[in-house]
Nucleic acid binder design. Structure first.
Lengths: 128, 128
DNA sequence: CCGTATCCACCTTGATACTG
DNA sequence: CAGTATCAAGGTGGATACGG
């Protein structure tokens, strides 16, 4: 089951769009995905709950992101046939497991953001 | 040193563009950043080395990505004043440390990509 | 060898209006 | 309540040509 690997640690197909890393990166890079997943980590939420919780998201983007998260198996969508409609979104085990690497990334970001901003300052103060 | 946290695990400011997580996410989400960092993990490379190694990258994007990586303190750029020009790129300690969370993400992606693709197939086969 | 400069096609996002 | 439809704006990346 050894995968083909270049001289670096990166699989060869990571230059193409269907590289697993690329696909996951593109997903979590979206403006709303991480916020939605994080909101659902504690439990099921309704559509309106999400839209209130995630400040600034438009109906279009919330729906669109939820739909693709559903398609990828990260959330389940449950429609209760009542009036008024009641639609609930819940993380799947896959969705919950995504929170792991995202948390690692967040930890790294918060640990190193000062260093990054210092570099930016130093760089702009000496443009050339 | 306690940071303000919402009822979820996500810092409150993660709804804004200057949230550390958002900034780092946007950086590594770029099409070329991960490939460049990975290429430089083993050591210094010249501009042309990078362009040959990273198949499909245009001069514009390679230069642009390297410049912003430099501005953020991830790589150093060394110009040797000779003819023909010799410019070398090297990862800083900060740049090398970024490889950690990225590797975690890659490992997760490769571990779960089958599950994701299975979900996609199941979803398209039952559109409604 | 190592870039810069321009132009352009695409894609993502957001605003707005409407509906079962 | 929980969406869909449509349109417009901005940003990202690529092709191409040229320069020190």
């Amino acid at each position: 089951m050894a995968t083909v690997v270049e001289s670096s640690g990166l699989p060869a197909d990571c230059y193409s769009a269907d590289c697993p890393t690329r696909q996951v990166l593109d997903r979590i890079a979206g403006k709303w995905t991480v916020l939605i997943v994080d909101s659902l980590l504690q439990g099921t939420l309704r559509y309106t709950d999400l839209s209130r919780r995630i400040e600034g998201v438009s109906q279009k983007m919330l729906t669109q992101t939820l739909r693709s998260l559903e398609a990828d198996g990260f959330v389940t969508r449950t429609v209760h046939p009542v009036v008024p409609p009641r639609v609930e979104y819940t993380l799947t085990p896959l969705g919950r497991s995504l929170a792991g690497p995202v948390a690692a990334l967040r930890a790294w970001a918060e640990e190193h953001i000062n260093e990054i901003e210092a570099a930016r300052t130093a760089h702009t103060r000496v443009p050339r």
